[in-house]
Design a protein around this nucleic acid. Structure first.
Length: 497
DNA sequence: CTCTCAAAGCGGCTTAACCA
DNA sequence: TGGTTAAGCCGCTTTGAGAG
């Protein structure tokens, strides 16, 4: 295959045999992996059109699944993957294999680069339609897409980011259809007029996009809907991963997936939340919970991101944009979910100078004015200690349920730290523990003193060379946009060191 | 009190199967 | 035989129920 000679052109990716191929000028010339490599060889191409489709004559995955024992979830996921897909990519990279479009929804989102692709001329046929790229908020429908299955040649490899998300943020227009909750620099939003927190009242249209435009956009979620948690776990399905919510303006209860479960007490009865519609046809719930509104004593409130997977997406963006390692050479490739030793680490970054950094990300949803046990807090209150500034809380990790006080909150997290330290000790690689707090009311980060096993392990790892970083992220309410807020200092003692 | 199990959803990895 | 994909497995996340 003459990959380099392809130039700006129309790619047609189609399954002809059970293999997926690249059709160029109507002829199958390559398989998926070769397409990836072909695209990676075209850095000078300003724009290419990509059509992912499926030859219905071949035996589909759905048919295979129907005859297998595992017919449920995967069958649906693969059926989606087999649907016709149309997309265009600007300055294509190896990771720009596009996904999922159908004739009802012209919008396409590629999950890893989070770009939205729109069909400019909907009247066009699939083989000749003109397509344009728009860096704006993906639609809910677009999220249904999935990437093509990774090939053995380049599993999990994400190419260097094609362009800065900062540029994307600046280039955004006001075309987004969802209403926006604009907060101040702390991400605070004003309290509603009545005492009951009503997210709908907070979702006023934005009149000032300047602050958002100058910020570093890290991620954009699909359209979000306001709701209130009624039961968790759900009364209908007794899984801790599901809750009953009441969507704004809807009387009946709706089943919602809560991937972070109770999120240390944040997602509880009465909580105001933002949810997206589930895109899985096999999911038991129709919606997925993303943010919870945390009220402050002074009447303001903050959106707190609770979705643990989003923390990884945010971490990826921070890594790719050079915010985590500003003094190191840029990251060339970023592999996700890489198994090393007995653990699987979130990212392995290869820098331009050939050095390698192993990164483990932790979502830090919890923040408080005080890090300690309930007993210690009661003692402080009894001593009439003045409450600290509500907007200078500490992001605290970990904070979770445990059976025994002597147990670590998260044995896995402890294992990860110890293995990161081992990686540094072996030499040849850098290791980093990256904490992501999806809230803006925090001024610093601590590893909780209520889990001394983990705290000691992290501190020891840091002393032995593991890079410890913490960032806070500002969520723009219902617009679903996440911006870098600040890097948080990691505090170990009362002197702030 | 302690331990085990299960719950939903996502996505990477391994192995088997298939095709040119 | 080499290349590629499908199928299945597993890790990850937190909490509550039930058994011993």
């Amino acid at each position: 295959m003459r990959a380099v000679a392809l130039g700006p052109c129309v790619f047609l990716l189609a399954t002809t045999t059970p293999s997926i191929g690249l059709i160029f000028s109507g002829r199958v010339v390559a398989s998926t992996a070769r397409v990836r490599r072909a695209i990676s060889c075209m850095p000078a191409t300003p724009k290419a059109r990509v059509l992912l489709t499926c030859d219905r004559t071949c035996r589909s995955n759905a048919e295979r699944d129907a005859s297998s024992s595992e017919a449920g979830n995967r069958q649906s996921r693969r059926r989606k993957r087999d649907e016709v897909k149309i997309a265009t990519v600007t300055a294509p990279t190896a990771s720009d294999l596009f996904i999922c479009n159908d004739d009802k929804s012209p919008a396409v989102t590629y999950r890893k680069t989070r770009r939205k692709v729109e069909v400019a001329d909907q009247a066009s046929t699939s083989s000749s339609c003109a397509l344009t790229v728009a860096a704006s908020q993906p639609t809910r429908k677009a999220k249904t897409g999935r990437t093509q299955a990774p090939t053995t040649s380049d599993k999990g490899v994400i190419s260097k980011s094609a362009r800065s998300r900062r540029e994307v943020a600046i280039g955004e227009t006001s075309s987004a259809t969802t209403e926006v909750v604009e907060g101040d620099d702390h991400g605070r939003v004003p309290a509603p007029p009545d005492s009951a927190l009503n997210a709908t009242s907070l979702m006023r249209a934005s009149t000032d996009t300047a602050s958002a435009a100058s910020a570093v956009l890290l991620h954009t979620l699909p359209k979000l809907f306001s709701a209130t948690v009624v039961h968790r776990p759900s009364k209908e399905v007794k899984s801790p991963y599901l809750c009953d919510i009441r969507l704004a303006g809807v009387e009946t209860l709706t089943l919602c997936h809560t991937p972070s479960l109770g999120c240390s007490g944040l997602v509880t009865t009465g909580a105001t939340v933002l949810v997206s519609q589930s895109t899985s046809s096999t999911a038991k719930s129709s919606h997925v919970l993303h943010h919870v509104l945390q009220a402050e004593a002074d009447g303001t409130s903050h959106w707190v991101g609770t979705h643990p997977m989003t923390a990884n997406v945010l971490a990826q963006a921070l890594l790719e944009e050079g915010h985590v390692f500003p003094s190191l050479s840029r990251i060339e490739t970023l592999r996700k979910e890489v198994t090393m030793g007995n653990s699987r680490f979130d990212f392995v970054a290869t820098h331009a100078d050939g050095s390698v950094t192993v990164v483990e990300t932790k979502n830090v949803p919890v923040a408080d004015n005080f890090d300690g046990t309930k007993k210690e807090r009661a003692a402080l209150l009894a001593a009439c200690i003045t409450p600290p500034d509500a907007y200078h809380k500490i992001a605290i990790f970990p904070d979770g349920y445990r059976k025994k006080v002597s147990d670590p909150v998260s044995p896995r997290a402890l294992k990860h730290v110890q293995e990161l330290e081992a990686i540094v000790r072996e030499g040849g690689k850098r290791a980093c523990l990256l904490f992501i707090s999806q809230r803006t009311d925090v001024a610093s980060f601590v590893v909780t003193s209520t889990d001394m096993q983990y705290r000691t392990a992290v501190r020891k790892a840091g002393e032995n060379g593991v890079v410890l970083k913490a960032f806070s992220v500002r969520w723009d309410g219902a617009s679903g946009r996440a911006f870098l807020h600040r890097e948080l200092p990691i505090v170990w003692d009362a002197e702030g060191k």
